[in-house]
Structures are given as C-alpha cells and as structure tokens.
Amino acid sequence: MAERPPPPLSPAARDLLRAFRDDESPTEHDRRRGLDGVRARVPESSAAANGSFYAKVIIATMGVAAAMLLGVKMVGAGVTALANDARQPAMEAPYQGEGQTSGGRAVARTPQAIPARSSGTASRERAAVIVEPTTVQTPSPPSTVPARSRASSPSPAPVTTTPSAEDISVELDLIKDAQQAMQQGRHAEGLATLAEHARRFPQGTLADERMVLEAELLCASGKTTVARAKVERFLSKRSGSASAARMSVVCSEHIP
C-alpha cells in the first residue's frame, strides 16, 4: 500500500533549516575558486599529457643521478675494500658494510646495506628510518696509511656530506607524489607532501623543484598572493637556479 507524503514542517522548523543551509553553503569565493579549479583540470588530456611529460623528464633525470651516485658509492667502497683487503684484510673485514665507527669516526655503509628501492609510502617510511640523519658520511678516499694508524690518528679525516642514493630516492618519491597530486587537482595533499619534503630535506637535492611546485600548487589552488610572494623570493635569492626560468612564469597571468 502506498504511503502518503508526510505533513510539511512548521515555519519555525523551516527557518532553522534555512539558517543551517546558509551556514553550510560555500561562499562566493569558494564557488569562483572551485570553478577556476575545474577549468584548470579539464580537459585533462592535454594537461595530463604536459604534466606527465615534465614528470617523466624529471624522474628520468633524477633516476640517472641516483644511479650515478649509487655507482660512485659502490665503486668507491669497492676500491676501498680492495685496497684495505690487500693491506690488512683481518682488520678491515668486520666493519665493512655495517656502518660502524672506527676510532670515533663514522665509516660509511657499503652498498650492501642500502635497501632496494621501492615506491609507496611504506617503503618511504622504511627508507626514511634507515637514512636519517639525511647526510651520510662518505668513505674517505683510499689512503696509504694503514687502517690501524688511521684509527689512532687524532686528526679527523675530511668529511663530505653528499646526499645518499636513499635520500634522493625518498626525495624523488615525495616530489613525484606532489606532482601527481597537482595533476589530479589535490592541491592540499600536494602542499602537505611538499611540507614533508621541506621538513626532511630542507636543503635537499630537489629543494628548488619543491619550491617551484609549491608556488604552482598555491597558484592553482587560488592562493595567488602567496604564490607570487614565493616566486619573487625565489627569484631574488636563487636567480642562478636551473629552475628560475620555470619559476618566473608561475602565476604570471595573475600579476596585477
């Protein structure tokens, strides 16, 4: 049996619901910004194609850089190991590949200690745990001084702080995530990912890329004033950066 429609609400009830509806509704600013966002995302074919092209170029470049760094580390460690094996194999063997200290000085991990790179948040978390602190001391170049002597030497060996392959891998994952978020219009998530990159790698290899992406995301999400301020600060402080040309056009259509 068909049920009859319920009786209408009283005027007082309707007034309350109207107030609620107004309170819950987007502002005119939300509406305009939303439409701008939708316009920027459709048609997605051309935008996605451009985005994926740049993403591929960056990823390929960083992949090569990571591979080269890894290769250098492996060769360096291999040469050190061979040289030390030839001199005092019994002394050097125990700490090769374990990242232990020798005489108070850190000895870098050999490539065996580097976990295989995989994508995804979980692997990133694992990698982050392993690689912190973000700067890893690299092995000193092969020396004619035997290891025992080096261990007892009071003068510290010169230490460089080049980013490890793991660092670059984690950085690359974060930047890639942020790019994908931007392409899919998830601006808040993209900015959050970049904030995480800034926290972990304030002066990271991809710091400039992060700054450009951040400005692009801010602009795309309608925060043009903040975006333009970031562009100007970047160009005044990093005019020689390879990313300067790209940064200079960010939000340029919004310049008053």
Binding site: D36, A40, S46, A47, E216, A220, V249, V250, C251, E253
Partner: peptide, 8 residues
C-alpha cells in the same frame, strides 16, 4: 604555472 585554457 600556466593554466590550461578551456573553451567556454
């Protein structure tokens, strides 16, 4: 970033 231009 240059926004993709969408036909009205």
């Amino acid at each position: 970033m240059v926004m993709p231009v969408v036909d009205a």
